[in-house]
Amino acid sequence: EDDHHMEFCRVCKDGGELLCCDTCPSSYHIHCLNPPLPEIPNGEWLCPRCTCP
């Protein structure tokens, strides 16, 4: 699979289990988001950068 997502968290710059945005290459740990997510959501997810007006 050709995955163009970042291999590190945009916030802390560390790797591991990352949540990938469905519209851009950004990846995040769920605990690095503000507010943090309790678990990885099902379905499409947009990062804070893509949901800002």
Rank of each mutant, 00 (worst) to 15 (best):
M6H: 02
L18K: 03
P41W: 04
G43I: 08
P35T: 07
H31K: 13
L33K: 03
R10I: 12
E39C: 07
L46T: 12
G16E: 13
C32W: 00
K13G: 12
H31P: 05
P38Q: 14
L33P: 02
L18W: 02
C9F: 02
H29G: 02
G15F: 06
K13D: 06
G15K: 14
R49S: 09
L37D: 05
P41N: 13
V11M: 12
T23K: 11
E17W: 03
C47K: 03
N42G: 13
R10E: 10
G43S: 10
H31L: 07
F8P: 04
P35K: 07
K13E: 15
D3S: 14
D22S: 12
D2L: 15
L37C: 07
H4P: 05
C9D: 03
C24S: 01
E39L: 07
T51K: 11
C50G: 02
M6F: 07
V11D: 09
R49Y: 07
T51N: 15
G15W: 05
T51L: 12
H31T: 11
C50E: 02
E1P: 04
E7Y: 01
P25W: 10
H4V: 12
K13S: 09
D14C: 07
I40C: 13
H5Y: 14
P36L: 04
R49L: 09
T51E: 14
E1Y: 07
F8L: 08
D14P: 00
C52R: 14
E7Q: 06
V11H: 13
C21G: 02
C32H: 02
F8H: 06
S27V: 11
C47T: 02
G16T: 04
R49G: 14
D22T: 14
H5I: 15
H4Q: 11
E1T: 06
P48D: 09
W45E: 03
F8D: 07
H29C: 05
P25V: 07
S26W: 09
P36N: 05
C52W: 11
N34D: 09
S27Y: 13
P48N: 03
W45C: 02
H5C: 14
G16Q: 03
H5F: 15
P25H: 12
I40T: 12
E44Q: 09
T23I: 11
C9Y: 00
P41R: 08
C32S: 01
L19D: 05
H29I: 01
K13A: 14
D14F: 05
C9E: 04
P48W: 05
L46C: 14
G15R: 10
I40H: 13
S26Q: 14
S26H: 13
L18D: 00
L18H: 02
I40G: 12
F8M: 10
D14T: 09
C47F: 01
I30S: 12
P36E: 05
L18G: 02
E7D: 11
E1W: 00
H4M: 14
T51S: 13
H31V: 10
P35H: 04
E7G: 06
L33V: 10
I30K: 11
L37E: 06
C20F: 11
C9T: 01
P41E: 07
D3M: 15
N34A: 10
D3L: 15
C52V: 13
I30C: 09
W45S: 04
L19R: 05
P36D: 05
D22G: 12
T23G: 14
P48R: 05
H4I: 13
M6Y: 03
I40S: 12
I30R: 12
T23A: 09
C47G: 02
C20A: 14
P36F: 03
R10A: 07
C50P: 01
E7M: 04
L33E: 02
S27G: 06
D3Y: 15
G15N: 07
S26D: 09
G43D: 08
C24H: 00
N34R: 07
G43L: 07
L37Y: 06
P36C: 03
D14W: 04
P41M: 07
M6C: 07
H31G: 12
C12W: 01
P36H: 04
P35G: 05
H4K: 15
C32R: 01
L19G: 04
S26A: 14
S27E: 04
C12A: 01
C52A: 10
D2W: 05
R10W: 15
L46W: 06
L19T: 13
H5A: 14
C52D: 06
E17N: 10
P41Q: 07
N42V: 13
M6L: 02
H31Y: 09
R10L: 12
E17P: 02
T23F: 06
C52I: 07
C50H: 05
C12I: 02
C12K: 03
H29V: 00
H31D: 07
C47V: 03
H29N: 03
R10P: 06
P38T: 12
N34P: 06
E44K: 14
I40D: 08
C47W: 01
R10V: 11
P53S: 04
C50W: 00
I40R: 15
C9G: 03
P48F: 02
C47P: 03
L18V: 09
E44T: 09
L37N: 06
L18C: 01
L33D: 03
P38N: 14
W45K: 03
D14E: 15
P25T: 10
W45M: 04
K13N: 07
G15I: 04
C21N: 01
H29D: 01
D14L: 13
M6I: 12
V11C: 06
C32N: 00
N42R: 12
C21A: 02
C12Q: 00
C52F: 05
C20Q: 15
Y28P: 02
N42P: 10
P41L: 06
H5S: 08
T23M: 10
